[in-house]
Design a protein around this nucleic acid. Structure first.
Lengths: 118, 118
DNA sequence: TCTTTGCCTGCAACTGCATTGCAATGTTTA
DNA sequence: TAAACATTGCAATGCAGTTGCAGGCAAAGA
């Protein structure tokens, strides 16, 4: 079962929400899919994306992705097709912070129109 | 009533969630505060921040803030004190996107330890 | 082989936050 | 004063995420 989900995740271009998974595997229980995603996230197979749409999305981690600040890439949410994409090529540039601020995580989400919809 | 909320918002250093407001104004109804925030947001007095903690936070808009991409600043969420701050001095640098991607909004949230907690 | 142990799955239920409908109240305007 | 509109509060709903519990399946050990 998890293998099916993993396979599905790796075939996706866009990030996948729990609802997406549920629609794709309507034979499986919502809870099972939820826990599957959580397990994958723990194991570092996927990373979660909070894109402000209300539902958390998941996408596969690239080879060697540790989800550490220096590994983080940009996520793009298209307002037309409502999909969220990883943009691994767009790295987050260094950002100057006030003194004594220590960064552990960065999340950069751009919203607009993606290439397919424009 | 709204004046009280507005006054409260402008005195805050950190962004404010609905729960924060409810705690500060326990005489007022949660719904009233919710709609007050929504109204302020519509009028451009405050902007909302989705910092991934599950509850949306609100902060006052700076003079001339149109919440347009070029106006956007960084938000910082401290994992210790659990507060979210606006960092208007930390501008979001230009980010190179693949072709045909059009940006309308940018949200950059950094998480870590703030100056007060370190 | 039989039993035990542990993981995976599914049902039910709960939580927290956001949101809406409706009635009551207060305030402005004609 | 009466009508129109805005503001407030209560109740209820919706949705996403989360947890507890029990059954089932499979691997490990006697």
């Amino acid at each position: 079962m998890r293998l099916l989900v993993l396979d599905f995740l790796f075939k996706q271009q866009a990030a996948v929400s729990l609802n997406d998974l549920e629609a794709a595997f309507h034979r499986a229980d919502r809870i099972t899919l939820y826990r599957t995603l959580k397990t994958f996230e723990e194991k570092g197979l996927v990373h979660s994306i909070v894109d402000g749409t209300g539902s958390v999305k998941y996408a596969r981690c690239e080879e060697g992705c540790e989800c550490a600040p220096e590994d983080l890439h940009v996520h793009f949410h298209c307002n037309l097709c409502n999909e969220t994409y990883c943009l691994p090529k767009a790295r987050i540039p260094e950002i100057a912070l006030p003194e004594n601020f220590k960064t552990e995580e960065i999340s950069l989400i751009m919203k607009g129109t993606c290439a397919s919809c424009s």
